[in-house]
Design a binder for these strands. Structure first.
Lengths: 103, 103
DNA sequence: CTATTTTTGACACTTATTGTCAATAGAATA
DNA sequence: TATTCTATTGACAATAAGTGTCAAAAATAG
């Protein structure tokens, strides 16, 4: 199982594409420092940035987005003994909402 | 399946115990207005308040905490198509962390 | 060594969150 | 109805959290 963070994955992808922070940051229209921090997990990524990066690197946005969301989830339940139970409850509710979406 | 929010449940429990907001707020050492808003979902509950309330109402803290955490999770993935996938990834990671907790 | 890339930290700015308070509204009762 | 207790609402200030900008320092590449 992959235990890589989203930031680590993004850095890896950027390096595979041989793009410097400078260029990517310019495309994202953000400061190099911020992007550097995002890749190292010192600043939070936004959904918008994740989607733009998927576009820039021409990779599947879904995989990145799922990782992005799951990290936000993990952040909420970190160190909580009841985290797993809470996840199961949330899952049931999501399914319930989906089933009743159109009603 | 229960679709009740934590706030609604807490209000229900408080009414069953026939306690006015005033008294509970005093026990919690917070303003009545805040407790009122918490029960109606206008202000966020903190873990501390949830635990204190379980104590005041002499009810099982686990059930309340699970609901508390799952609402925080739901908040992060609301309206996201990939929410369910993200939940599954988070679940795998939590299990992984738990398995490697002592290592 | 020099140039480029990356990291770090300080700072100001904006946005969110939280607590406090008083006025208003509602419910129950004398 | 008048009174009292209870609950809601909104305004406001205080605080915390998140963001953007910048320049200096560190690391890396050529």
């Amino acid at each position: 199982m992959s235990t890589e963070t989203l930031g680590e994955k993004l850095r890896q992808i950027r390096e595979q594409n041989e793009l410097p922070l400078r260029k990517v940051a310019a495309l994202l229209d953000i400061d190099v420092a911020i992007l550097s921090k995002m890749e190292r997990g010192e600043r939070k990524l936004s959904k918008e940035v994740v989607l733009k990066l998927a576009d820039i690197y021409k990779c599947n946005p879904e995989e990145l987005l799922v990782l992005f969301l799951s990290e936000k989830i993990m952040y909420e339940i970190q160190d909580e003994d009841l985290g797993e139970k809470a996840l199961k409850v949330a899952e049931k509710r999501v399914k319930y909402l989906k089933a009743n979406k159109t009603k």
